[in-house]
Design a protein around this nucleic acid. Structure first.
Length: 555
RNA sequence: UGGGGUGUAGCCAAGUGGUAAGGCACCGGAUUUUGAUUCCGGCAUUCCCAGGUUCGAAUCCUGGCACCCCAGCCA
């Protein structure tokens, strides 16, 4: 992990550097990555992970992985497992710094009592609707709750009975006593605890009152000794409340909250709610569908954590909203795979080619490099025979001006094999080309000739009698518009791209793909980078296209 | 004049009073047995706008404008 060179100079890094440098005995840096276990992690979370774990590493501190599990109605153990797997896959280690907000429920409860005893919190018995109605609006002050001046003893009694399970959901809440006229809505006596008769994935049935995020987060940070609590911009308005909690409870230290902007990517959505609806409406096959911006989806698609880290590093950390073009991500993926992916040949839309002057009884083995730019990656053997497949896109009966692949009368090179010249195209009754008849030049074995004559096009190919059959999945953007939220004013389903998955049922691959392990990246030359799908098997080969090669063809 | 933020190229982003880094994208050109890769070159007389301060302003001041967030017993 040495690919963080842009992020290291973000405004947050500068703050941290200054804070650490200012101290005589430089206090160590502590950060935390606090996902709520109510969904899968996506690339926006990756940005936060890179920041939090990256800062900890750079300043020789620690980063906690803390599950922010304060709402048992939405959370599930199943998500905890997937989040841990994703964090580890990204290459970040939390060691024994794996915690839950729910680990601190006892301490939090005590601190709530401390607030009550100091007259800074009260039990409010208004209904949710009445609380909303009395909160005021953005431009007008709210009204004090009639329960605001309850006696401390009464508050203590009620709160203990709330915890004891005497009351129904929604009948009472604990509120901070701050200022119902504050221009900051978060300070208008925010709710601290609510009653939820609900089993919790971590604490079981021990509790029926659960603390709110605004109460839990600063205190969990303080308990863990977090020095820099890094969160996204929408929490900026919460910072005064974050600080109020820390200033009014006897905490061991004073963490500092700093906000940065969320990441968004063109042609996709990043909110858990919208991703969930894509899954539920079966627009995709699941959270790990390779079209999803989730880490599990990207992993299944063949992205490696290296590229995601490079990407996060390149976009940087700022307070300006990021709307990143897909090409920026894809460039990172290609850059990574270009180095490490072995080369193979495969044909996605097969067109039969019969080489008339090559004996049908003959067959030869050609030794070819796994990576033409890196001899250390070794060689493999491919088979050549008189019948081969080429991609139908590589033939044009009436070539356009810039087309320099195969067409009648033209000579091209079969990569690593021979030069062939097309004699004629055979068509079926409906006029579709079904087969090409060609002749090869025996002098061109390996793909070159002594006379050094120029051959403009080089084609990938697969020997028909040796080919493996496979299903190849090609992926396009999930949406037809770069900004499905902004553009559609809510009805983003209308812009789901019906063509985002193209399944090529009859692909032909060279046999060495059989040795490929699921998850291993390879390049199908002239097409793109691929990997075997997690559900692929040797009887039923399924390839996922990770990303296409750049293509500057101008036909 | 509710409050809180943000404006540097098509998309990101450095820049912190001394004369606009870098990446992606795009456009040229070289090399190439992948129309890939690689390599070279081009791409903001100007930083949301208008005034002001200064020898000098993207950076400081004043006044505008645009966009984002906030009225969960969600996080």
């Amino acid at each position: 992990m040495s690919d963080t060179k842009h992020q290291t100079n973000s405004f947050i890094h500068q703050i941290v550097r200054k804070d650490v440098g200012d101290r005589e005995n430089a206090k160590s840096v502590v950060t935390r990555f606090p996902p709520e276990p109510n969904g899968y992690l996506h690339i926006g979370h990756a940005k936060s992970m890179c920041l939090n774990f990256g800062i900890a590493r750079e300043f020789d501190g620690v980063c906690f992985l803390r599950f922010d599990d304060t709402n048992p109605c939405k959370e599930d153990e199943h998500y905890v497992a997937s989040i841990k797997a994703d964090v580890e896959w990204m290459g970040f280690s939390y060691g024994n710094h794996l915690t839950h907000a729910s680990d601190y429920f006892d301490q939090l409860y005590e601190w709530a009592i401390e607030l009550i005893k100091n007259g800074k919190a009260y039990v409010c018995s208004l209904s949710a609707e009445d609380i909303r109605a009395s909160r005021g609006t953005l431009k007008t002050a709210g009204q004090n709750s009639p329960y605001r001046e309850r006696a401390i003893e009464e508050n203590m009694d009620l709160f203990e009975r709330m915890r004891g399970g005497e009351f129904a959901n929604g009948s009472h809440v604990l509120r901070a006593k701050i200022d119902m006229a504050s221009p900051n809505m978060n300070l208008r006596d925010p709710t601290l605890y609510r009653i939820r008769h609900q089993n919790h994935q971590n604490t079981g049935n021990r509790w029926c009152v659960y603390p709110m995020y605004d109460f839990t987060h600063p205190l969990s940070d303080a308990i863990e000794g977090v020095t820099h609590s890094l969160c996204t911009l929408e929490f900026e308005d919460h910072r005064p409340l974050y600080d109020w909690i820390l200033n009014n409870v006897s905490v061991p230290c004073q963490p500092q909250q700093i906000e940065f902007s969320r990441l968004s990517l063109d042609y996709t959505v990043m909110s858990k709610r919208l991703l969930t609806s894509l899954v539920e409406n079966q627009c995709v096959a699941g959270w790990d569908d390779p079209r999803m911006p989730t880490l599990s989806g990207m992993r299944r698609r063949g992205y490696r954590p290296e590229s995601i880290r490079t990407f996060c590093d390149r976009v940087g950390i700022t307070k300006k909203e990021q709307k990143i073009e897909l090409s920026a991500l894809e460039a990172c993926v290609r850059e990574d795979l270009e180095q490490i992916a072995v080369r193979r040949m495969g044909v996605i839309k097969p067109l039969k080619v019969v080489i008339e002057n090559y004996s049908a009884d003959d067959c030869e083995e050609l030794t070819v490099p796994n990576h033409p730019g890196n001899p250390k990656m070794g060689n493999r053997i491919i088979n050549f025979s008189n019948e081969i497949w080429i991609d139908s896109d590589d033939f044009m009966e009436h070539p356009s001006k810039n087309f320099f692949r195969l067409s009648p009368g033209r000579e091209v090179r079969l990569r690593y094999a021979y030069y062939i010249t097309c004699i004629r195209a055979i068509k079926n009754d409906s006029g579709e080309i079904t087969e090409l008849r060609c002749r090869y030049d025996p002098e061109s074995r390996g793909g070159g000739t002594k006379d050094n004559r120029k051959v403009r096009g080089t084609l990938h190919w697969v020997s028909a009698k040796h080919a493996l059959s496979a299903v190849v999945r090609l992926y396009g953007p999930l949406f037809t518009t770069p900004d499905p939220i902004g553009e559609t004013k809510g009805d983003f389903m209308k812009f789901v791209n019906a063509d985002s998955l193209k399944t090529m049922q009859n692909a032909k691959l060279e046999t060495s793909i059989e040795e490929t392990i699921i998850g291993d990246a390879f390049q199908l030359e002239r097409i793109g980078y691929f990997c075997l799908d997690s559900k692929s098997s040797s009887e039923n080969l399924v390839l996922n296209q990770t990303v296409a090669l750049r293509d500057s063809k101008r036909d």
